[in-house]
């Protein structure tokens, strides 16, 4: 597993993808943070980070697919998945290594962007508990996003299809509860609420650690990584 993890991390920096992801994310994150948080704080208004993190979720739904689109699609296209699948590394270990590599990229870039908090503390009086809650929420949400991207990448050998497919699914899962106001049928509303990644984020924004949300995001990760393993097992046993 270590060999695949190392190779994946390395591959982000032997192609432009890793640099593009970090640069674009930090630029957008810094801009949004400045617009919706720092400027308000410096003008004496409430330094709420709510808008910043809401915008960030949609930014992630566009940028996370950059990290996951090639993860399996490229192996398939280059024929290197045969190398991995005939090695001693079990399928679940291969899937986990690729997931962890993409998640390390996601999490480490996010943690770098937390340096912005320093500015906020300098010019305003934010609540540390709330900020911490948001940060934990983003790290959990990111894991779910990455798992979904990894799964979709395993379905195709075309990186573009993997990326567009992931963006579509992530946006749908983010926006699904917004449709609720237009739906009268209660069970559909329940399903939409259950599917909604966004609605689970709520308690973190109050600085409350929501164990149910943790379970929800962990379940999303487990289900999509399990499905990825099944994709490869099914291909072997087809």
């Amino acid at each position: 597993m270590g060999a695949i993890l190392k190779k994946e991390l390395r591959s982000y920096f032997t192609s432009p993808i890793g640099y593009v992801y970090i640069a674009v994310y930090l630029a957008i994150s810094g801009f949004v943070f400045s617009m919706f948080t720092v400027q308000q704080a410096s003008s004496g208004e409430d330094a709420s980070v709510g808008t910043y993190f809401t915008v960030l979720m949609f930014v992630y739904s566009i940028l996370v697919p950059l990290l996951t689109m090639r993860i399996f699609a490229d192996e398939k296209k280059q024929g290197t998945e045969q190398l991995l699948l005939t090695s001693r590394v079990p399928i679940w270990s291969m899937v986990l290594a690729k997931f962890v590599a993409a998640y390390i990229m996601f999490a480490s870039t996010f943690l770098i962007s937390l340096l912005d908090y320093y500015v906020l503390f300098k010019y305003g009086k934010p609540q540390p508990g709330v900020l911490f809650g948001y940060a934990v929420g983003v790290l959990l949400l990111g894991a779910a996003f990455v798992a979904i991207g990894v799964f979709i990448s395993s379905l195709t050998e075309n990186q573009i299809i993997a990326a567009v497919g992931t963006i579509a699914v992530l946006l749908l899962m983010l926006c699904v509860n917004f449709f609720n106001q237009y739906i009268d049928i209660s069970w559909i509303r329940v399903v939409c609420n259950w599917l909604s990644i966004y609605s689970r984020f709520g308690n973190f924004t109050y600085g409350v650690f929501d164990f149910n949300a943790l379970l929800y995001y962990a379940s999303i990760c487990f289900v999509f990584l399990f499905l990825t393993v099944r994709v490869y097992q099914r291909r072997r046993y087809q």
């Binding site: 190392k6 190779k7 032997t14 280059q78 024929g79 998945e81 045969q82 001693r88």
Partner: peptide, 27 residues
């Protein structure tokens, strides 16, 4: 087993030394 599939499973963005080192770790 050492296996060479019909399409050699190579990573074009690696040097030969890096690739063999990766295989060494993988195995």
């Amino acid at each position: 087993i050492g296996f060479l599939p019909e399409i050699p499973p190579l990573y074009p963005d690696m040097t030969v030394a890096e690739y063999l080192s990766f295989i060494y770790d993988l195995k």
